[in-house]
Design a binder for these strands. Structure first.
Length: 530
RNA sequence: GGCCCCGUCGUCUAGUCAGGUCUAGGACACAGGCCUUUCAAGCCUGCAGCACGGGUUCAAAUCCCGUCGGGGUCACCA
């Protein structure tokens, strides 16, 4: 049975690199008809685990990366929290001790430090002298009489080589002599990560350990632990990093300030912030950060798009196919097409995937996606609920592909939902299109009378009407349409003008034109301007 | 610094294992143009890469050696 696992620490957020690892584990398991296990590595995690865990669980679920065994779903090989498995690790440590493959070490931190320094001074790599190693009860008693306490260390081999057949990298060779006698159990009896991880992977029958490259160097000690415990070793696959935009460094949540120097990244965040601001969302970089998956959920990305993008970051199917549904990914995914080199996170490319996937979303689904944003922005308060559905579907229709994220509805179509006398005008647009051109107000006044008489008030008729108007007035369409747009929508951009007018309806249009003319004439820009 | 990993357009990548069909293909981005009532979208064109140096070979992105560059790891963190 093929079984993979993702083993995050409860850090309180789901990192984009972490989720890529999880996705590959999940995809590999599903592709092979196996199971994906979620285990929480909360050894030595002092915080409130429950609270720090939820964002991770939510993020994975949102992306459709579901787990067959793990927190909240249970499973036959639990518990799936390391904090609840301490006894198993202790038993393993004891077994290692019995077998003579680990030993109690009574060295103090200072003594160890001195040895390290000496090694450094002599320019040789540090190898512990094992001076305070206690292999007999007699040694133990002697050291304890000195008031020392013991940790348990691995008694690593000091010669020979180890070859790991990594499924991504091929054979990787290590020298046992380079390995340290790593501590696996503290003086207080608690066990450390590497021991826990190996024991769990065995207990949970993990067949393939797929994880980030940073673990490649720790693999020998884990292999040693596994072998010493008589386990059948899992296969290993070490994934390349997800790197920073424009560099090869590992992407990190803490370096937001640095990434802001990248134009694309800054734009991505700024776009998100515009939406956040409209829905009263706290844009705290702790949670509102493009390195963290929740960012994308909050501003209305499609999980499918994120999954597609992440899958292609380090994996490919062929030389040209880029668009995949989840099902297609599951069908095609394989470890041997994973790239060895780290790949940079590219905000622009992610957005391109988002746009591509958004194109396939039917209007009915878009309505559902967009509604929470309108709701949170308080734009549904003034709307007649009986009209909402048909109105929203028309709006989404005319917005077309302009709405790239669900949150974009607030940037492109908010004016449909505000009362006529509450419409806010973009200051620059108002100035440029209404106030500055001398003829704008006069033309708008004339046009208003024609609009008042228009019947029916639909887009094709309105378009005809406007063209007639420009002919009669002897003007170019640009001389009136921009002013009209600003007057009616408050913005310099948006869906097609005639569509906007038709959806808004005659009454609203006329009121808005009146109000714009009034503000232009009498009160200046002070009032009603954004 | 030791050890380990990696190096194809700005970015993601195909091609490398099984050398020729690769004067290196696709995508994103970027630049210019077309379309156009705005913003998008769309269409067209363009820009741009085998890290470097040797070697093997009729032939090297591909095999070998070296150099350089980048990254990871060397915890009683995970």
């Amino acid at each position: 049975m093929l079984r993979t696992r993702f083993a995050p620490s409860p850090t309180g957020y789901l990192h984009i690199g972490g989720v890529r690892t999880a996705l590959f584990c999940w995809l590999f398991a599903k592709a092979g008809g196996g199971k994906f296990i979620l285990r929480i590595d909360d050894t030595d995690w002092r915080r409130n685990v429950d609270e720090a865990l939820h964002p991770i669980l939510d993020g994975l679920r949102w992306l459709g990366i579901d787990w067959d065994e793990g927190p909240e779903v249970g499973g036959p090989l639990g518990p799936y929290f390391q904090s609840q498995r301490a006894e198993k690790y202790k038993a393993a440590a004891e077994k290692l001790l019995q077998a003579g493959l680990a030993y109690r070490d009574y060295a103090t931190a200072e003594e160890l430090q001195a040895e390290r320094k000496a090694a450094e001074a002599e320019k040789r790599s540090f190898v512990y002298s094992r001076k305070w190693m206690a292999e007999t009860p007699k040694d133990q008693a002697r050291f304890e009489a000195e008031g020392r306490s013991a940790v348990v260390r691995l008694k690593m081999p000091r010669e020979g080589k180890l070859v790991i057949d990594d499924l991504v990298r091929g054979p990787v060779e290590f020298d046992w002599a380079q390995e340290q006698d790593h501590v696996i159990q503290r003086a207080d009896g608690s066990c450390l990560y590497h021991l826990a991880s190996v024991v769990d992977d065995h207990d949970m029958q993990i067949s393939h350990v797929i994880r980030a490259e940073e673990h490649l160097s720790n693999t020998p000690r884990q292999v040693f632990i596994g072998q010493s415990l008589g386990y059948e070793l899992p296969k290993y696959a070490h994934l390349p990093f997800v790197a920073e935009p424009g560099s090869r460094n590992k992407l990190s949540k803490r370096k937001l300030a640095k990434y802001l120097g990248n134009r694309d990244f800054a734009q991505l965040l700024d776009h998100g912030r515009q939406i956040a601001q409209r829905i009263g969302l706290d844009a705290d970089p702790e949670t509102f950060n493009p390195v963290v998956v929740d960012f994308y959920r909050q501003v209305g990305y499609l999980p499918e798009a994120i999954v597609n993008y992440l899958a292609l970051l380090g994996w490919s199917w062929d030389d040209k196919t880029e668009h995949f549904t989840r099902r297609e990914l599951v069908e095609r995914f394989s470890l041997d097409r994973i790239n060895k080199a780290p790949g940079s996170f590219d905000p622009k490319k992610l957005q391109a995937f988002q746009e591509r996937h958004m194109l396939e979303v039917p209007i009915e689904q878009k309505m559902k996606m967009v509604l929470p944003f309108l709701e949170k922005a308080g734009l549904l308060d003034a709307v007649d609920h009986d009209r909402l559905e048909s109105m929203l579907s028309q709006i989404l229709e005319i917005c077309g592909d302009r709405i790239k994220l669900s949150g974009d509805i607030l940037l492109y179509a908010d004016f449909f939902f505000v009362a006529d006398d509450a419409l806010a005008y973009d200051e620059k647009a108002f100035e440029k299109r209404l106030r500055k051109p001398a003829e704008a107000a006069g033309l708008l006044t004339k046009l208003k009378d024609r609009l008042a008489a228009a019947e029916p008030f639909d887009a094709p008729s309105l378009e005809r009407l406007l063209h007639e108007f420009t002919e009669i007035e002897g003007i170019k369409i640009g001389q009136i349409i921009h002013a009209l747009r600003v007057a009616v929508t408050g913005k310099a951009f948006g869906p097609g003008m005639f569509d906007c007018l038709a959806v808004l309806g005659k009454e609203s249009c006329l009121k808005r034109i009146d109000r714009a003319l009034f503000i232009n004439r009498d009160t200046g820009l002070a009032e009603g301007i954004m």
